[in-house]
Design a protein around this nucleic acid. Structure first.
Length: 138
DNA sequence: GCCAACGTTGGC
DNA sequence: GCCAACGTTGGC
């Protein structure tokens, strides 16, 4: 199963709002980048990803799960982009900050470090396991 | 609030 | 189809 990272500015859509959306989850709309779209299209139900706060916080704060695969994004008037639905799974007890990720040599190849502007990113199994551990899960 | 990096747009 | 100009993102 693939692992992912979803980036959101808390002022736009925060982890607290994701938690409040509950088990029914919400659509992850607004992706307007083809590389990010490619990630969304590859996602399957049940796959999990990190929820990362950009700009404010700059940390992995939660785990989300894909509950609906790729379908058209109704907020995209061009009709070119789509989205998935995600639900909050659990909070990360100790948010893993960007600083902490950058300080960890095993994470130096993370997309978050090398292409920080990509809003939906693939995460390797090793990165997934390490960040979970750093965050106090497992 | 600045600015570097990067994606997209549009003129040619 | 190239590339300059522009807009956006996101770290600092």
């Amino acid at each position: 199963m693939a692992r992912w990272l979803f980036k959101s500015e808390p002022s736009t859509w925060s982890w607290d709002q994701q938690v409040a959306a509950g088990a029914e989850g919400t659509f992850w709309n607004g992706v307007r980048n083809h590389l990010a779209k490619k990630q969304l299209m590859a996602m399957q139900i049940g796959e999990q990803g990190f929820f990362y706060h950009s700009n404010e916080g700059k940390a992995v704060v939660g785990i989300v799960e894909v509950i609906r695969p790729y379908y058209p994004d109704h907020t995209d008037e061009t009709g070119r982009f789509g989205m998935v639905d995600v639900r909050a799974v659990e909070a990360v007890p100790h948010p893993v900050t960007l600083d902490a990720i950058k300080a960890e040599s095993a994470l130096k190849d993370m997309v978050l470090v090398n292409n920080s502007r990509l809003s939906v990113q693939p995460v390797t199994e090793a990165e997934w396991a390490l960040i979970r551990r750093m965050g106090g899960l497992d």
